[in-house]
């Protein structure tokens, strides 16, 4: 018989002050078990202080084929960066 435990994506906050970061996935019957399994699989050496688990099927990802349309528009907007602006010599604290 097939094991129908759903797939979960695991995110770990490695210490206070940092974002949760994707570390991999695992199978579990429900969210509680997914947290417990994530503890054993991904934090055996104190790699985390907090765990998020998300059903993999709930994740919507951008399509890599549309990478250009999505991300190119940011590329020619140099005026979004501080170096675009001219300042006189000698000015400090800016």
């Amino acid at each position: 018989m097939k094991n129908n435990w759903p797939l979960w994506e695991v995110f770990i906050r490695s210490r206070q002050g940092l974002n949760h970061k994707h570390v991999g996935s695992l199978h579990a019957a429900d969210a509680d078990m997914a947290i417990e399994n994530a503890r054993d699989v991904y934090t055996r050496r104190s790699e985390g202080v907090s765990i998020w688990v998300v059903p993999s099927e709930q994740i919507t990802a951008s399509n890599p084929d549309q990478k250009d349309e999505l991300f190119d528009p940011a590329e020619d907007k140099v005026y979004r960066h501080p170096t675009f602006y001219d300042l006189p010599d000698g000015i400090t604290h800016m």
């Binding site: 097939k2 094991n3 797939l7 991999g24 055996r44």
Partner: peptide
């Protein structure tokens, strides 16, 4: 030995990203 189980799980999970199912691998 517990680590080796973990290694198997990291790798099965990496393998599944290629579109195979864990049960088929087992």
């Amino acid at each position: 030995v517990q680590d080796e189980a973990g290694h198997g799980l990291y790798l099965y999970s990496a393998c599944e990203t290629l579109g195979v199912e864990r049960d088929d691998l087992f």
